[in-house]
């Protein structure tokens, strides 16, 4: 059992409040991803959990025990750093075993644990190498190996893939996912990359300016974002957000009129690029747009449409589309796929 609970956790640096009265529960064996833009406080929150930053106010409870005053080493956590934090003068085996040596474990135990972690991470041929002789991905695996040998209650990852190139990041993402299944461990993972969050997480915690905007499964966050911030942050490419006005019965916007009943006043419509259709088949409304740019990615393409009123709409198209920049297109958006956000940014529908 490894559960973690933060209750009204607050972090202040002098007069600056970085985290404010934050509540969060992480369940046993859960993979929770903290995601948000740079400076939103997600790394600070992880460091508070790790014991590398004091908690100014509130409680951190792990497996029922309050941990605020417990030193980092005695919380039973292991952390993988963004920079890997490998000791450059030590070999891979020494890097992985340093915690066990400090704890005074006997040689045989150390050897067994290092060998087991090396097997899991396919590091066996590299145990005698120093970090400078390893690639970025191998270094990252050593950092993970160092965490594994400690057999921690909870693994903490602080943007562990951000120093890797795109191909390696994808590979490491898969390996981390497999590792989570294999170890059946509780993991808390910080990233600013929403693709990592969507692909790895059981639940995602979207943070902004030291607060939690929404907690949910990747599907919940994608389909039912709680507010404009989450709607804009989750999904790649971003959700189309279009300024509109509701008269109480109908919403009027640059992308058409929708018979959606929400309170009168300014609203924002949210439309995912993949729900927009070209032409009109079984649709509630049609609208025309002028294609400005087309990006062809192979399996799909993205067209950027000027629909007037200074509104640029991203439309996802299947395959390598033949549509070209400069063309005019008819588009339609099913009304049931349109999300509506109120003037305060909260989702109304």
């Amino acid at each position: 059992m490894s559960e973690l609970r933060l209750q009204r956790a607050t972090k202040r640096f002098g007069n600056l409040t970085v985290i404010e009265k934050l509540d969060l529960e992480v369940h046993d064996r859960e993979f929770v991803v903290l995601v948000g833009p740079s400076g939103c406080g997600k790394s600070t929150l992880l460091r508070m959990i790790a014991g590398l930053e004091d908690i100014t106010d509130g409680d951190l409870i792990i497996d029922g025990q309050r941990m605020n005053e417990i030193p980092a080493a005695r919380r039973g956590l292991a952390m993988v750093f963004q920079s890997y934090a490998l000791y450059p003068h030590m070999t891979v085996a020494q890097n992985m075993s340093v915690g066990l040596r400090i704890a005074g474990e006997n040689k045989a135990t150390i050897q067994n644990k290092v060998a087991e972690a090396a097997r899991i991470l396919q590091l066996e041929p590299m145990l005698d190498r120093k970090p400078k002789a390893l690639s970025g991905g191998q270094r990252q695996r050593v950092a993970i190996g160092r965490a594994i040998v400690r057999n921690p209650r909870i693994f903490l990852f602080d943007e562990p893939l951000s120093n890797l190139d795109a191909a390696l990041r994808l590979q490491m993402r898969l390996e981390l996912s497999k590792l989570h299944d294999e170890l059946a461990a509780t993991m808390i993972y910080v990233t600013h990359d929403q693709v990592e969050a969507m692909t790895l997480a059981d639940r995602i915690v979207v943070m902004n300016a030291g607060r939690i905007e929404q907690i949910g499964t990747p599907e919940e966050l994608y389909q039912r974002p709680a507010n404009l911030f989450v709607a804009g942050f989750i999904g790649s490419p971003k959700m189309n957000l279009v300024e509109a006005h509701s008269d109480g019965n109908v919403i009027d916007s640059a992308i058409g009129r929708y018979p959606i009943r929400v309170a009168e006043g300014p609203v924002t419509l949210g439309v995912r690029p993949e729900v927009i259709r070209i032409g009109c088949q079984d649709c509630s409304t049609t609208h025309s747009g002028h294609v400005q740019v087309v990006e062809r990615l192979g399996a799909n393409s993205f067209a950027y449409l000027d629909v007037g009123d200074r509104t640029l709409l991203t439309v996802e198209l299947p395959g390598m589309t033949s549509i070209k920049a400069g063309e005019d297109l008819q588009i339609s958006i099913p009304a049931d796929k349109v999300l509506v956000f109120g003037g305060n940014g909260e989702r109304l529908r």
Partner: peptide, 26 residues
């Protein structure tokens, strides 16, 4: 890099151990 010290702190190293494991070789 300060994260070397933080990583070792999480491994349970005392300040003296941090000195010998990181500062001296560093």
């Amino acid at each position: 890099p300060s994260d070397l010290y933080e990583a070792l702190r999480m491994e349970g190293a005392s300040r003296i151990q941090q000195f010998f494991y990181i500062t001296v070789p560093g």
